[in-house]
Amino acid sequence: MKKVKYLLLLILSLSATQKIAAQKDTIAQQRQARKMLRQGNELYENEKFTDASVAYQKALGENSNYDKANYNLGNALYQNKNFKEAIPQYELTTKTATNPATKAAAFHNIGNAMMESKNYQGAVDAFKNGLRSNPNDDETRYNLAVAQKLLDKEKKENKDDKKKDKNDDKNDDKKDKNKDPKDDPNGDKDKDQKNDKNKDKEQDKKQNSDKNKEQDKKQPKPKEGKMSPQQVKQLLESLNNEEKKTQKKMNAKKAKGKKIKQEKDW
């Protein structure tokens, strides 16, 4: 009986020792993870995004549930233009973040990455989710409008291309049906008649060209360096349109990528 009690005490003692050791390992891993995160942040601030990515990955190796490391890894990948790789990191943040502002920022950055990848439907969905988390975010609202316009344009172009392809197929079918040179005994005659008509047209064009040259000689030519009022109006309209296009591009670039923020852990 005493032996049984002794064995039970020994088992309990060993179990408690293992739990204490496991807790110590966990605390040590968390400290190491925080250390690697701080290193990553320093590298990020110095625009060494590749090295920062490595540091954040090491932090996640010590603590796979480290939200700040996940989010910052996404930012480092984004800054290195690895947009497709950055998206899963932001998605993890949207699932684990308890702060609505952090969740909204992650959705915003997903939208930016989707825009860079020309996935406009994905960008629209991400920006909408960002506004659900933070309805007062004007940056996300602006980016949503830009993404929606690009998506509408893409859909219209795809629709026009399909319609054009369909019409081309119909025209090809008609040509194939009407074509049968072997069964047409008058084919050579028609060809000769067409050639004669083309020659007559060329002669008429030449005569008209000679007449126009004679008329041009008689008419006074405008002085070089001067523009007619209509040409000036067209030039001003063209410059105005180019200025509007440039302004739109600048506004779109200003909106993109503006939301990236680092999760500090000092």
Rank of each mutant, 00 (worst) to 15 (best):
L37H: 14
N72L: 05
S209I: 04
T96G: 00
A113E: 09
T98P: 01
I110K: 09
L14F: 05
P135V: 10
Q121W: 06
K156Y: 10
N129G: 05
G130F: 04
A52E: 04
E85N: 07
A123S: 12
N80A: 13
D188P: 00
K221D: 07
L43E: 13
D152H: 10
K205W: 03
L131H: 02
K248Q: 15
N46E: 11
A33L: 05
K163M: 12
K197Y: 15
D67K: 03
D125P: 01
L92I: 10
K211L: 08
E45L: 13
N136A: 14
G74R: 05
A255M: 04
D196M: 13
D137A: 01
L9T: 09
E42R: 12
Q18K: 00
K206E: 08
I87N: 10
A52C: 12
G122T: 05
L150D: 14
D210F: 08
L77P: 10
I11P: 06
K166P: 04
A147E: 03
D200N: 04
D25Y: 07
M1N: 04
M250N: 12
V4Q: 15
M250K: 14
S13C: 13
K156L: 12
E116G: 05
S133E: 10
E45W: 12
L151K: 09
E224W: 02
D184G: 02
L239A: 11
N65S: 14
A255T: 00
S117G: 07
G61P: 00
G74S: 07
S15L: 04
T94E: 08
A145N: 11
K68T: 01
L7T: 00
I260Q: 15
K261T: 13
E91H: 10
Q203S: 03
N240S: 13
N80S: 14
I20S: 02
K58P: 01
K3L: 01
Q57H: 03
M114K: 14
K182H: 01
Q231S: 08
K211A: 03
E243F: 14
K179Q: 05
D216Q: 06
L150M: 14
A21H: 07
A76G: 01
I27S: 05
D200I: 09
D137K: 02
S133Y: 07
T17A: 14
N63A: 03
S238D: 14
N212R: 06
D196K: 15
A59E: 00
